[in-house]
Measured scan of single mutants.
Amino acid sequence: MLDDRARMEAAKKEKVEQILAEFQLQEEDLKKVMRRMQKEMDRGLRLETHEEASVKMLPTYVRSTPEGSEVGDFLSLDLGGTNFRVMLVKVGEGEEGQWSVKTKHQMYSIPEDAMTGTAEMLFDYISECISDFLDKHQMKHKKLPLGFTFSFPVRHEDIDKGILLNWTKGFKASGAEGNNVVGLLRDAIKRRGDFEMDVVAMVNDTVATMISCYYEDHQCEVGMIVGTGCNACYMEEMQNVELVEGDEGRMCVNTEWGAFGDSGELDEFLLEYDRLVDESSANPGQQLYEKLIGGKYMGELVRLVLLRLVDENLLFHGEASEQLRTRGAFETRFVSQVESDTGDRKQIYNILSTLGLRPSTTDCDIVRRACESVSTRAAHMCSAGLAGVINRMRESRSEDVMRITVGVDGSVYKLHPSFKERFHASVRRLTPSCEITFIESEEGSGRGAALVSAVACKKACMLGQ
């Protein structure tokens, strides 16, 4: 009897593995994704193909990295998701002549009506938060230079001027797309009239992360975010950046690689679950690469896999709870928690219980395998993109072996128990001629924006502006 049951459990697990095998990517698959990513990057950089390229390769006008001589107080704003952060950054000489960066910050959550109302409502709310922060720190009387981390696709015309191309991540505030974001912020500050600010720089969160990590390690020339969304930036040779005049030196390019796949480059790798996630998203047909990796989508992918296993009578005796059938019910943090389970399955059992399920031991094991399959594919897909960037940098610099540091931020990278190990191992397999160091950014977005502002202020002083 026991043997029969054991055989049935083994057969069930084997069927589960057959279904989950769809998520496995072979090294040849990853090399294919990497080569296609490089081709799209090239198209994004070139003037004649930029418009139709899915990977936009947006110039950021960040050319210099901090040298350690900029000092002063800077205000930093960070808008990239449902939370908005205001930070005071003091850049100065530390002990023994070292450079020191001290920060104080406060988080504000953005109400739904500000995210989806008008641009005026959104930026009025942001300036209200700045006003509140300055009151708390008794700094209303000071006109501070301000660095703005704005983590949406922007076409820069200068370091302090950028046109919002399109909202992502659930934002829909009308009247912002096609307009200068810094102008919208300046107008809102003017409307309030109770404080003055000098907006000197606007950067993407990947750029802010790279600059913040450069402060720790001067070989950091790539910034990457794996959180709600997924994106990367890197220092490109100016001669390859056709959208900006000049051939000397390097400029940081914001790849906006989340949109890779929007022209069909990933079609052969998309599964039924991916198509369902895409169809029910706020932007169907867009940001397809990001939807395979980002935390906004990972939990939902797992939920759809679990429903398939229920329908195949391989999980929960073929019956799903009402909660499990509800879109968004299986949160991405559950994926991390399930994979963090120590082996007694308590954590998995508790999560499934909150979803109205009474799982068996085998159910718990199957749910864990589903989570591992989805998150491992995410790590491997992400590795193909980064390997594409790094191999490109090595080739354009004609280096036999390139040493490089990548600064990384984002909740999936930082909080998932195995993502970074799987990701690092896969990147290294795909970049055999590179020695890569990964560092995690601390308060990256805010500190990085302030350091970019410090560079901009120093330049302005040198130019006598």
Results as ranks from 00 to 15, higher is better:
Asp194Phe: 14
Asn231Trp: 00
Leu58Tyr: 10
Glu67Leu: 15
Asn391Ile: 13
Leu357Met: 04
Arg403Val: 07
Thr255Ile: 08
Asp3Thr: 06
Met381Lys: 03
Ser396Cys: 11
Val200Gln: 00
Met235Ile: 07
Ser433Gln: 08
Ala282Gln: 15
Val401Cys: 10
Met402Gln: 10
Ser127Asn: 00
Glu52Leu: 10
Lys414Asn: 11
Met41Ser: 05
Pro153Cys: 01
Arg377Met: 00
Gly446Trp: 00
Ala425Trp: 11
Ala454Asn: 01
Val55Leu: 08
Ser360His: 15
Gln98Phe: 05
Arg155Cys: 04
Ala425Gln: 10
Arg303Asn: 04
Gly92Ile: 03
Gly178Lys: 02
His416Trp: 05
Gln106Arg: 07
Asp187Phe: 03
Ile159Ala: 02
Gly223Ser: 05
Glu93Arg: 07
Ser433Phe: 14
Phe150Lys: 03
Val203Lys: 00
Gly147Asn: 00
Lys458Gln: 13
Ile126Ser: 01
Phe171Gly: 01
Phe316Asn: 14
Ala460Gly: 15
Gly448Pro: 01
Asp247His: 00
Gly178Ile: 04
Met462Lys: 12
Gly295Leu: 02
Glu177Leu: 08
Ala454Thr: 05
Glu120Ala: 13
Leu45Asp: 02
Tyr349Val: 09
Ala21Glu: 11
Cys434Pro: 08
Cys233His: 02
Cys230Leu: 07
Val302Phe: 05
Cys434Trp: 04
Gly246Lys: 00
Glu14Ser: 13
Ala114Arg: 14
Gln219Cys: 12
Pro145Tyr: 15
Glu248Phe: 14
Tyr289Val: 06
Ala450Lys: 03
Ala188Val: 08
Gly410Gln: 04
Thr118Phe: 00
Lys56Leu: 06
Asn83Ser: 07
His218Tyr: 13
Asp4Gln: 08
Thr149Ile: 02
Arg192Trp: 04
Ser353Trp: 08
Arg191Met: 02
Glu157Met: 09
Asp187Gly: 05
Leu292Glu: 06
Val226Gly: 03
Thr362Lys: 10
Gly328His: 05
Met202Tyr: 01
Glu245Trp: 12
Leu185Phe: 04
Asp132Ala: 08
Phe334Ala: 12
Asp311His: 04
Gly249Phe: 06
Gly385Ile: 03
Asp78Pro: 04
Glu256Ser: 03
Val277Ser: 07
Gly117Cys: 08
Leu79Arg: 03
Ser174Met: 02
Asp42Tyr: 09
Arg422Ala: 13
Lys56Gly: 10
Leu25Asp: 13
Leu304Cys: 09
Leu58His: 00
Thr116Met: 11
Asp194Pro: 06
Asp365Ser: 09
Gly261Met: 04
Leu184Met: 07
Ile110Ala: 00
Val33Gln: 09
Ser441Ala: 11
Gly44Trp: 09
Asp135Leu: 12
Glu300His: 05
Lys291Val: 01
Thr60Trp: 01
Trp257Val: 01
Leu307Ser: 11
Met8Trp: 11
Met462Phe: 15
Gly343Phe: 06
Pro432Thr: 10
Ala119Ser: 06
Phe316Gly: 13
Leu276Gln: 06
Ile189Asp: 03
Gly170Phe: 01
Gln98Leu: 08
Asp194Arg: 03
Gly356Ser: 13
Ala53Gln: 05
Asp42Val: 10
Asn313Val: 11
Ile404Trp: 06
Ser441Trp: 08
Glu128Asn: 09
Arg46Thr: 14
Ala114Asn: 12
Leu77Arg: 01
Ala119Trp: 01
Phe260Trp: 02
Thr168Asp: 02
Val222Pro: 04
Arg36Val: 08
Thr65Met: 15
Lys414Phe: 05
Glu372Ile: 13
Lys458Ile: 11
Glu216Trp: 06
Ile436Ala: 13
Ile390Cys: 13
Leu292Met: 14
Thr431Glu: 13
His218Asn: 14
Ala456Val: 15
Pro432Val: 13
Leu2Ile: 07
Arg403Gln: 09
Val62Gln: 05
Met202Pro: 02
Ile351Leu: 11
Pro111Thr: 09
Tyr215Met: 15
Tyr61Gln: 00
Phe133Glu: 01
Val452Asp: 01
Cys233Phe: 03
Ala450Tyr: 00
His424Ile: 07
Ser151Met: 01
Leu30Asn: 11
Ala114Glu: 09
Gly295Asn: 00
Lys420Glu: 13
Arg392Tyr: 11
Phe150Glu: 02
Val181Glu: 02
Leu386Thr: 14
Tyr297Gln: 11
Leu47Cys: 14
Arg308Tyr: 09
Glu17Gly: 08
Tyr273Ser: 15
Trp257Ala: 04
Cys434Met: 08
Phe123His: 03
Lys90Cys: 13
Tyr289Gln: 08
Val406His: 03
Arg43Gly: 05
Gly44Val: 03
His50Glu: 02
Val305Phe: 14
Ile225Pro: 01
Gly299Cys: 04
Pro417Arg: 12
Met251Thr: 00
Met381Cys: 05
Lys15Phe: 14
Phe438Asn: 03
His156Lys: 00
Arg303Phe: 00
Asn283Tyr: 10
Cys457Ser: 13
Gly299Ser: 03
Val427Pro: 06
Ala259Lys: 09
Ser127Ile: 07
Leu357Trp: 08
Thr376Ser: 11
Val253Arg: 02
Arg447Asn: 04
Glu196Trp: 08
Thr149Gly: 09
Thr228Phe: 00
Cys233Ile: 00
Phe150Val: 04
Asp78Trp: 03
Gly246Asp: 07
Arg429Thr: 14
Asp73Ser: 14
Cys230Lys: 09
Asp341Asn: 10
Asp4Pro: 11
Asp267Asn: 10
Ala449Asp: 00
Val335Lys: 00
Asp3Arg: 13
Ser281Tyr: 10
Glu256Phe: 00
Asp73Leu: 09
Ser418Gly: 09
Arg377Asn: 07
Glu300Cys: 07
Asp344Trp: 06
Gln347Ile: 14
His380Met: 09
Val222Trp: 06
Glu312Cys: 11
Gly299Ile: 00
Phe133Arg: 03
Arg275Thr: 15
Leu307Phe: 06
Thr437Lys: 12
Glu67Asp: 07
Ser127Trp: 04
Gly407Asp: 03
Phe195Met: 02
Ser76Gly: 15
Lys169Phe: 01
Met37His: 02
Glu157Ile: 11
Gly464Lys: 09
Glu331Gly: 13
Asp4Tyr: 11
Val101Gly: 10
Tyr215Glu: 13
Met139Thr: 13
Gly356Ile: 03
Thr60Lys: 04
Asp135Cys: 10
Leu144Glu: 03
Phe419Met: 01
His105Asn: 06
Phe74Tyr: 15
Met107Phe: 08
Ser340Gly: 08
Ile293Pro: 13
Leu307Ala: 11
Met235Ser: 09
